[in-house]
Design a protein around this nucleic acid. Structure first.
Lengths: 204, 204
DNA sequence: ACCTGAACACCGTTCAAGT
DNA sequence: ACCTGAACACCGTTCAAGT
């Protein structure tokens, strides 16, 4: 049993049935191996999940196209992280639940901090800004995939429930916000949020 | 068995032993009740978690002090959400894993959208900005509590591991970022990120 | 050195039967 | 109407024993 194969199979299982269905026993069965064998390669299930998170970020730190402004470089990098998390079902949940220190994760953060430092930010401000961006991407993608999961089950029921709860006399602003809140234009939401953050950088 | 009591007890159990230790069976035992009884009040464990998330947000939509600028109002509201999530161990994980449509959650979002609309944003832009802020707060607090959890177990081991992985020749920017990345000044990080977002609003 | 088989101590959820 | 008791179909993790 090879570790990279196990990680790839685990990601495939998650894609097929969701993170909640990924168990050490199912993974062992998919690899034609006894459960105990997995523990010779991964100390715990957490370790496996961290390896999956690391694998998901492969390529995210690849070279940036020439000729981008620093704003575009930041947008490109943030977009790559979102795309990487979206590539696998429950990807954001896998990523948010772990803390990898593997090369993909490290070089992604290194690249992001590097771009931010080029905008004349101090190392501290660049690092904090990188954290801000990563946290926003994680929070956004977590919600985006939660909405996706909902769409595959009881979407209409939930929308009806929400609509019924939105009494305009009690929640005047939510009533006006409902269309946007329930919209599936996640690219629009993501771009809006990222632009806010990047615009905020201009003042430094 | 009363539902509010069950929710309060569940939150207490999470505070004591963490979210991973919260099981329907343990909660039933703490309430001096059989497990099956819980399912008469909560359809699934997810329903229980949603009720806990809703309870955590109690008070977050309370009246804002007079005389705050709109920037300060936004900062105050975002800070309230962070504080509410921090109040319980693994609070951010509980909140991120659910989607409550209860009055605490709805009135919080309503208040936030309302403040943003006062700054002359369109309903759509105000809603998207509210989402951006909430997603940032969730992402930030998720990481903050993950760091807290780590601090209670193998912090030094992880820091050593990270430090060893940070070859300055491979990750030049991370080496400069290490002090900030491993800092525990979460208020500083949070304020920095929030200011970026709020500053970004100025241009509209 | 690596894997198997089998166990330990749990899970979430359901449901007939009791009161 | 509400709760109990007991079961069903699972979990993550460990470890002696095999090859």
């Amino acid at each position: 049993m090879a570790v990279p194969e196990a990680v790839a199979t685990a990601l495939r299982l998650v894609d097929e049935d969701g993170l909640d269905s990924l168990t050490m026993r199912r993974l062992a069965a998919a690899l034609d191996v006894q459960v105990g064998t997995l523990y010779r390669h991964f100390a715990t299930k957490q370790t496996l999940l961290a390896a999956m998170a690391e694998e998901m970020l492969a390529g995210c730190a690849g070279p940036l196209p020439d000729g981008l402004t620093w704003r575009e470089q930041i947008t490109e990098l943030a977009g790559r992280l979102r795309t990487a998390l979206l590539r696998h079902r429950d990807g954001a949940r896998v990523y948010a639940g772990t803390h990898s220190v593997g090369p993909n994760t490290l070089s992604y953060t290194d690249t992001l901090v590097g771009v931010l430092r080029e905008t004349c930010l101090s190392p501290e401000a660049a690092t904090r800004t990188a954290l801000t961006i990563v946290h926003f991407v994680i929070g956004h993608t977590l919600e985006e995939q939660a909405a996706q999961a909902l769409a595959e089950s009881d979407l209409p029921a939930t929308l009806t429930l929400l609509h019924a709860a939105l009494d305009p006399d009690v929640y005047p602003h939510l009533a006006a916000a409902e269309a946007t809140l329930t919209s599936t234009d996640f690219v629009g939401h993501f771009t809006h949020g990222l632009n806010l953050i990047v615009k905020g950088l201009a003042g430094d």
